[in-house]
């Protein structure tokens, strides 16, 4: 199963990005093969609709869970209908590596 984590940089030591739609990078982590992929977010600079565009990108990668800080009002309903689980971590100092460690408990 694939999990997307929003990240502020393209390193494992980067912090989690608190915004979903306008995060710098998406970290795609596959829980089965344990592969990690960094995808830069092309919607970062969009003036409007960054959230839905990001959802489209994530959904095309067949992600089942998203880990981020906050989700906008447009996104919650979209993700609900796509049956993608939202996990929200309200701690901006959490590192991507720590989250991946948690996931593989």
């Amino acid at each position: 199963m694939k999990v997307a984590i929003t990240s502020t940089g393209n390193l494992l030591e980067s912090n989690i990005d608190q915004r979903f739609g306008r995060c710098a990078y998406f970290v795609l982590y596959d829980t089965e093969s344990q592969s990690i992929e960094f995808v830069p977010n092309p919607n970062k600079e969009l003036e409007e609709g960054a959230g839905p565009a990001s959802v489209q990108l994530i959904a095309s990668k067949e992600v089942k869970k998203i880990i981020s800080g906050e989700y906008g009002i447009k996104i919650k309903s979209l993700l609900d209908s796509l049956k993608i689980q939202m996990i929200s971590i309200k701690n901006p100092d959490k590192k991507v590596k720590e989250i991946i460690d948690l996931l593989s408990h």
Binding site: I67, K76, S77, D80, S81, I87, S88, I89, K90
Partner: peptide, 16 residues
């Protein structure tokens, strides 16, 4: 807006 029920984990402090 449509929303599902949210839960809070006591161990890792996340919401899901």
């Amino acid at each position: 807006y449509f929303d599902s029920d949210w839960y809070h984990c006591k161990k890792c402090g996340c919401f899901f």
